[in-house]
């Protein structure tokens, strides 16, 4: 197994430079969630030069919408949605300060270029093991776009959240390296 690193948010440019595609990471600290519609809204506000409802500077965003918690639980099941739907917006969000992204699946060349340019990182979280991941979430709170229901932006406190570096700041991509013959 490749390197296992314990990292605490906020993730800095220096931390990103020390991460390589294929590294396993246990991430702790505060992150936010956001997916399709939240990305669209944030990008529009950025384009219009308006104030954002959340701070993006140095932030890590998890493409996720959890199940509702049963009474007495912090959160329901939680895991990544497929990232390519956020590709259109991800470079804009990185320009606005997003340093880490958590999702699953391939990213576009434009996103991978932006990851290099802004010294960011794209982590893969395992898809379909959301009951297991639920235990890593210690606090959860809706901080913006509550009208989106499960797609609202939440702030999460996570502990030892298991991730794998997919795209690193040097331009390497785990999927490409794992599948030598490529996908096309």
């Amino acid at each position: 197994m490749k390197n296992l690193q314990r990292i605490r948010t906020p993730i800095t440019a220096k931390v990103c430079e020390g991460l390589s595609a294929g590294d396993r990471v246990l991430l702790s600290g505060s992150i936010i969630t956001g997916r399709d519609t939240a990305h669209k809204r944030l990008s529009r506000l950025i384009a219009e030069g308006k104030t954002l409802p959340v701070r993006l500077d140095g932030e890590t965003i998890f493409y996720a919408a959890p199940t509702p918690p049963r009474p007495g639980r912090v959160i329901g099941s939680i895991g990544p949605t497929t990232s390519y739907r956020m590709d259109e917006y991800a470079p804009t969000l990185m320009e606005a300060g997003i340093r880490g992204m958590i999702g699953k699946g391939k990213r576009s060349p434009a996103v991978r270029d932006a990851i290099v340019r802004y010294k960011a990182v794209y982590f893969g979280a395992m898809g379909g093991v959301a009951a297991l991941m639920s235990a890593c979430v210690k606090k959860a709170e809706v901080i913006a776009y509550g009208d989106l229901g499960p797609e609202a932006i939440m702030q999460l406190e996570i502990e030892d959240f298991p991730l794998i570096v997919i795209d690193d700041a040097s331009g390497r991509d785990l999927y490409e390296e794992a599948v030598p013959n490529g996908y096309l």
Binding site: A64, S77, A135
Partner: peptide
Amino acid sequence: VAKNESLPLCQ
């Protein structure tokens, strides 16, 4: 875990 804790397998 999902079965024991009645948690959805996937979000």
